[in-house]
């Protein structure tokens, strides 16, 4: 069995009486897509925040690539190789699409402490950025101001910026949201190929995408992981059906 790249051990986080993360353990192995599903308010985004940084857990450890990252600040986790996309797009809105991607390339290269070389004239950074934009299909919009992009396009740009970081693992929080049927299908195909570059911990509401992509699925309900398994196992699990999929069937 392959050693997991990301290993979350008994993570807990409470807000007052609310247990947002309740003794959660999960792993992300090289080459896989591990989907995290659960009804609204199950604590998926809270969990992602604790993994990416920005929210300290009350208890538990997070190991990434052989390193305990539980207490590292967000930038250090990114440098360690965690590429994150946000549930609500978090981009530099005044910048062009290309500038956002170049920012990622600058972060990846770690050459921010340079003060005289024009950054947009750097052929290598531009090439990295353009390559990432081409992969998600945003190359035609390179000179568009980010604020003028549609919501779906912003999600794609988030993915592109994460690509420029050449991370060792992706944390993606609902990348399909706002994409529409065809865009969602296209991204599904793209993520399918991406897993061989770096494994993906995927939070997603689009169940078609989740069941098409995920090697393993974990179901989060009220902060607790109630089941982890393959798509078939999760479909067959009565507890999951009751807690989550049942609601969907009824709807």
């Amino acid at each position: 069995m392959t050693e997991p790249l990301l290993h979350i051990e008994r993570l807990s986080k409470s807000f007052g009486a609310l247990k947002a993360t309740d003794d959660v353990s999960l792993t992300l192995k090289p080459g896989e897509i591990h989907a995290l599903i659960g009804p609204n308010g199950a604590g998926k985004s809270t969990l992602i925040k604790q993994i990416a940084g920005g929210l300290a857990p009350d208890a538990g450890r997070i190991h990434f690539a052989g390193q305990d990252i539980t207490t590292l600040p967000t930038p250090a986790r990114a440098r360690a190789g965690l590429g994150r996309t946000f549930q609500i797009s978090s981009l530099a809105m005044d910048y062009t699409v290309l500038q956002n991607a170049v920012l990622g390339a600058v972060g990846q290269r770690g050459t921010v402490w340079r003060f005289f070389k024009p950054v947009m004239g750097d052929a290598e950074l531009r090439a990295t950025a353009m390559a990432a934009l081409e992969r998600v299909g945003l190359a035609d919009h390179a000179t568009t101001r980010t604020a003028e992009l549609s919501h779906g396009q912003r999600r794609l740009l988030e993915v592109a910026v994460a690509l420029t970081l050449q991370p060792r693992a992706f944390l993606m929080d609902e990348p399909m949201a706002g994409l529409g049927a065809s865009g969602s299908k296209r991204l599904t195909g793209f993520l399918d190929g991406l897993r061989s570059e770096a494994p993906i911990l995927l939070v997603e509401h689009d169940m078609d995408a989740v069941f098409a992509l995920a090697d393993r699925i974990s179901v989060l309900v009220y902060g607790k992981v109630i089941a982890t398994g393959t798509a078939e196992e999760i479909r067959a699990n009565p507890e999951v059906r009751e807690a989550y999929l049942g609601e969907e069937d009824a709807a």
């Binding site: 967000t74 990114a78 530099a92 920012l103």
Partner: peptide, 28 residues
């Protein structure tokens, strides 16, 4: 002027627009 168009300037102005974005690419 050079500072504004340098990698430092790009990251600094990005931190003004969205500090979270800058942290996510590994910069403080």
């Amino acid at each position: 002027g050079r500072l504004a168009s340098s990698p430092f300037g790009l990251a600094l102005a990005a931190a003004r627009q969205n500090p979270e974005r800058v942290e996510t690419v590994g910069l403080s």
